[in-house]
């Protein structure tokens, strides 16, 4: 399989409890050019898993492989888009997109490639602007262009549209779908929104918490673009919602009982 998460566990050192295990024995296999969403209650370890695939967090147990290679550190074969755009404020828009290219290709080539991807996210007009002169949605588009420009094998996205308003999010969904179809990337997408996950993905992986685990894996075999009022979409939403609600209830009860003890 293209991207393989094999029997992976993650623990953090914890002051009170010694170690704190976020999740254990996670298995996930993703095909090339697949769009997979990770859904789950807050704190179940979605960001942690994504950071491990990116190589930003170490793997406590198990292995993660991309194209047969073990992932041990961060690298340009995995592009990441964070919830905050994380652009460099001392560089203008185009220089931001060229940042990952400087070390690997000539200036001329880098410039052309940056132009290409800025056009793809419809920001050519703003390439000489500084990032703080852009709206949040525009900044996030620059971040997407920057991740795409280094031509990664996988695009990792951690709630990339979480901080945006409904309207902007809708527009960016459309853009992302277009990019996904044009570039044939493999995308691993973390979100809180069931609707977003179903609208965009080929597969929706639902995680549970305490202990962190994968609870369900839904194939979404619906033609794109998907409409919100499509019956099949609604049926799937309901199914995921039921699954998640019991899990979120569990977290709430757990937290409440904790508070009663203290």
């Amino acid at each position: 399989m293209f991207l393989e998460v094999n029997n992976v566990s993650k623990s953090f050192a914890d002051k009170d409890r010694g170690t704190f295990e976020v999740f254990s024995n996670i298995d996930l296999a993703i095909k090339e050019n697949q769009f997979v969403s990770l859904l789950g209650p807050s704190g179940c370890g979605k960001s942690t898993l994504l950071s491990m695939v990116a190589g930003l967090e170490s793997v406590t147990e198990g292995t993660i492989q991309l194209d047969g290679q073990n992932i041990i550190k961060a690298g340009p074969d995995r592009g990441m888009v964070f919830q905050q755009p994380s652009l460099f404020p001392w560089l203008n828009v185009k220089e931001n997109v060229m940042f990952p290219l400087k070390q690997i290709i000539s200036r001329q080539e880098a410039s052309e490639r940056a132009d290409h991807f800025l056009k793809m996210v419809h920001l050519s007009r703003f390439k000489n602007h500084y990032t703080h002169e852009l709206s949040g949605g525009m900044q996030q588009r620059v971040a997407i262009a920057r991740a795409l420009a280094m031509d990664p094998k996988v695009l990792l996205m951690d709630e990339p549209f979480g901080a945006l308003d409904e309207q902007t999010r809708h527009i960016l969904h459309k853009e992302l779908m277009k990019i996904f179809q044009e570039t044939q990337k493999t995308i691993l997408f973390v979100t809180h929104s069931i609707q977003e996950a179903i609208k965009l993905s080929d597969r929706v992986v639902v995680m549970g918490t305490r202990p962190g685990r994968i609870m369900a894996d839904f194939q979404v075999d619906l033609t794109r673009p998907r409409m919100r009022d499509d019956e099949q979409v609604i049926a799937l939403e309901r199914k995921v919602m039921d699954l998640l609600e019991s899990e979120i209830d569990k977290v709430l009860k757990d937290e409440l009982s904790h508070e009663n003890i203290h």
Binding site: P76, G79, M80, S86
Partner: peptide
């Protein structure tokens, strides 16, 4: 730290990270 993480996902590390970020 967020900028450092972003730079690392773009293959920047070590002295280059210090110098460019």
């Amino acid at each position: 730290p967020q900028l450092v993480r972003a730079a690392r996902t773009m293959g920047t590390s070590g002295f280059s990270l210090f110098y460019r970020v």
